[in-house]
Design a protein around this nucleic acid. Structure first.
Lengths: 334, 334
DNA sequence: TATAAATCTGCAACCGGTTTTATAAAACCG
DNA sequence: CGGTTTTATAAAACCGGTTGCAGATTTATA
């Protein structure tokens, strides 16, 4: 209800004076006046309008997180972890999910001049998880000045200076080599058919090096229940591999369940490896071998990078790559 | 880079003219001029500054979701579901988590006039999951006008007209009665010690009616791993109950794992009931009986309510209560 | 005591839009 | 052809803050 103008009128001061007293503790003002302003502001329950302030200062104290839909727990982990960081810095977190199921805006098609889907100007910075496609990058740039972006996960892109990488390559190779080392021959990959994906690359490369036949099962995106059914159908049709390297832990859990459905044992009949390191993998009767991603550390560093960039727009590029770690559990040990 | 002023100068028009042409398709303007403006705007990649627009119109096209930390999957489910709704309506979603672990702002203590933690004015409306405590309610109200709030979950509050309830009472009673009906006597409650909680109330009431001794194990908030340890220690100290009614599915899964650790079988030694209906409960070797919450429907209705309220601030109170549903699975069947 | 410096406060411009009001030109009409 | 209406655009007020600059006091210094 109370604007700074009303507060100023009430105090018989100009709004500039009031603003400075409220914002700048070091401004040269009469202690008595200062006290009057502060107490009256508190009495009237005055809070500056964040929108007006943002327009005047050019800062919104809001950062956007741009990530995939929350269909699996890994994404939740990322959001949770990042929201802790931003909250600690008194920033708001704006969530923009892409690639969701159901009614949604997965591409900027629904754009118009009147209702732009642009994040620039309404946020001070953006943290993405995964590298945004070019069409989206443009959206971060449509504003009056470029919005600082910190990309997490994925692989570095030349366009974006600030980057926290999650390097799966070594761990993924280690995972496949681990399966090969167990003496298994029919080792399948159950993953989204994306040639860019480091896991897929690692699988192909290690299998080639070992001279083993590749068996790539194209994962269809969906809920665990859907994945479970998909894998069950695959096994019914093609028989079961001796090991499955899964795109992520959710997939691995679905596969585990599908194997149970079929009366197959893990790891005796089929060895299993997932990826992400979500807590669930420990909570199955056979804990699942997984590639643990350092999400907490990633979030912390991403937030540090963004804060630095906000303070010093011309700071040198900030890049850090975190190594994922293979954690071998019962699902891949005989 | 381009503001409406630059665009207007470029076109040798006043900014008011440009604004109206871009926003109001019915405004009486020369077709030629209109076309000039639209094409030039597209060429220059003009997008109105959302902050400036928000200040002028009083609308931000942003809603806030105020919910608990994302430590369990149920919360993710809620966020995911709601974000789909808001995205479909071209609204931004601002996330404000409370009660987080780690560095965070769990109470408005860190408040100051300069950096207010107020959501009013920066969002058009708020959806909460759970009823916000009074100290927080004030924060939604500190702005120039009251922010519409739709409360989901929990129980109705007289203060807030718009409400989508999740009624656990019937299902929770049914769950405990189900356990009693199995002939079990030592039925424990493993939940946060909150007398307001419907689950806890249902447990107490049914146990009293059945003349059975109550055994309330106070759940400490934490990760599944921590809960697992806590329950293991409890059983070591006090022996195991014949059944456990858990605060939520995450707890139930942790308990399940703790029981496995101890060599106890579900449901033969201990029957298990969870609450929420998250997908994970189906993915254990013994699917867990749970109380399924209609989250998708809740989100849909909450968003409908909020949209209605934004359009008609004086519409009559909107209330709807959804019933949760007990789904009996293997963990509580002999 | 005159003057310079420091302290305090008001005024006005500005951020980038929207919206109301005013005015000029064109069209219409008797 | 003069007056009224319609059309097309400009000008200005406003949203609610921040901030640079200037003026008025007060204090310090010579």
């Amino acid at each position: 209800m109370a604007s700074i103008i009303q507060l100023a009128n009430d105090l018989k001061l100009s709004k500039g004076t009031v603003s400075r007293i409220l914002n700048d503790a070091t401004a040269p003002y009469n202690a008595k006046t200062r006290h009057r302003v502060l107490t009256r502001a508190a009495e009237m329950g005055y809070h500056p309008n964040p929108v007006a302030r943002a327009l005047a200062t050019g800062r919104t104290d809001t950062v956007a997180l741009w990530t995939r839909h929350l269909q699996n727990f890994y994404q939740s982990w990322v959001i949770n972890s990042l929201s802790r960081q931003t909250a600690a810095g008194s920033f708001n977190l704006l969530i923009r999910l892409y690639g969701q199921y159901g009614p949604t805006i997965s591409s900027p098609a629904s754009d118009s001049v009147a209702r732009p889907f642009v994040l620039s100007d309404s946020v001070d910075g953006v943290i993405t998880h995964g590298v945004p496609p070019d069409e989206w990058l443009a959206r971060f740039r449509g504003g009056s000045r470029p919005v600082p972006i910190v990309v997490t996960g994925g692989v570095p892109s030349p366009e974006i200076p600030d980057f926290v990488g999650l390097e799966l390559c070594t761990a993924a190779r280690a995972a496949v080599e681990h399966l090969v080392g167990m003496g298994l021959r029919r080792i399948a990959l159950f993953a989204l058919p994306n040639p860019e994906d480091r896991r897929n690359q690692a699988y192909i490369s290690v299998m080639e090096a070992a001279g083993l036949p590749q068996e790539c099962i194209p994962l269809r995106e969906g809920t665990r229940t859907e994945t479970r059914r998909q894998f069950r159908e695959y096994v019914t049709a093609c028989g079961h591999p001796e090991a499955v390297f899964c795109h992520n832990d959710d997939t691995a859990i679905a596969v585990y369940r599908a194997l149970c459905d079929l009366g197959l044992r893990v790891p005796d009949d089929v060895a299993l490896v997932g990826c992400d390191g979500i807590e669930d993998t420990e909570f199955l009767p056979v804990p699942i071998t997984t590639i643990v991603q350092p999400v907490e550390e990633m979030s912390r560093i991403a937030w540090e990078f963004l804060q630095r960039r906000l303070q010093e727009p011309d700071a040198p590029p900030q890049q850090h790559v975190l190594e994922a770690r293979l954690e071998i559990r019962a699902s891949s040990q005989k």
